[in-house]
Amino acid sequence: MSDEPPTPPANLPTEIVNTLNESTPEDLRDVATYAKALAEHKERKARLEEEVDQVEERPDDLPDDVPTKATITIKEINDNRYYYWQWREGEKIRSQYKGPVNTDE
């Protein structure tokens, strides 16, 4: 390791550099741990906000008690086919009847 102190990033504000230069090694390690955790938190928050922005609008035929994330699936019962809304709630898969599959389509 060099005897010279490291060069701070050019975009780091002077007041932060001065505070860090005056800090003990223990405080610097605590700051580094906190800064890493804070960066991860802010990145996660930004990802979640981006995902919320990308959520599609609620379909007109989606019942009020069915979440927006539900998808349509086809189930066959006694040789008849039916549409169901389907979504996950924790460990369980939930379904709600939508209507018969129109065989004329």
Rank of each mutant, 00 (worst) to 15 (best):
Y97I: 06
D104L: 15
D3A: 06
D3L: 10
A32P: 01
N102C: 09
Y34A: 00
T103F: 14
K69E: 12
L48N: 04
T7S: 05
E22H: 12
S23R: 04
S95C: 15
R81T: 13
Y83N: 12
D64V: 06
L38F: 12
Q54E: 11
L12W: 04
I72G: 00
K42W: 13
S2G: 08
P5C: 00
A32G: 06
N11E: 07
K69N: 13
D30M: 09
V66T: 02
G90E: 11
Y84P: 05
A70S: 03
K42M: 08
Y84H: 10
Y34S: 00
A70E: 01
P5E: 01
Q96Y: 10
R29W: 08
A39K: 15
T68G: 06
D53F: 15
I72L: 14
T103Y: 14
R29K: 11
P9H: 05
T19E: 06
R58V: 07
E40T: 07
R81C: 14
P8Y: 00
L20I: 07
V101A: 08
P13M: 01
I72K: 05
Y83L: 10
L28D: 03
N78G: 03
Y82R: 02
A39C: 11
D65P: 01
K92Q: 15
A37G: 04
T73F: 05
N11C: 11
H41N: 12
R81S: 15
E76P: 00
Y97C: 09
T7G: 02
Q54M: 07
R88D: 13
N102W: 14
D3N: 13
E51A: 12
L28Q: 02
Q86K: 05
T71F: 08
E15C: 03
A39S: 14
S2W: 04
Q96D: 11
A39F: 15
Y83W: 14
N102Y: 12
T24W: 04
V101R: 00
T103G: 08
L48A: 04
P9Q: 05
V52Q: 11
N11S: 13
P9A: 04
A10S: 11
P25Y: 00
D27M: 07
P8T: 02
Y83Q: 07
D79H: 05
I77P: 03
Y34Q: 01
E4D: 13
L38A: 05
S23W: 09
A32W: 15
A39V: 08
S95N: 12
L20E: 02
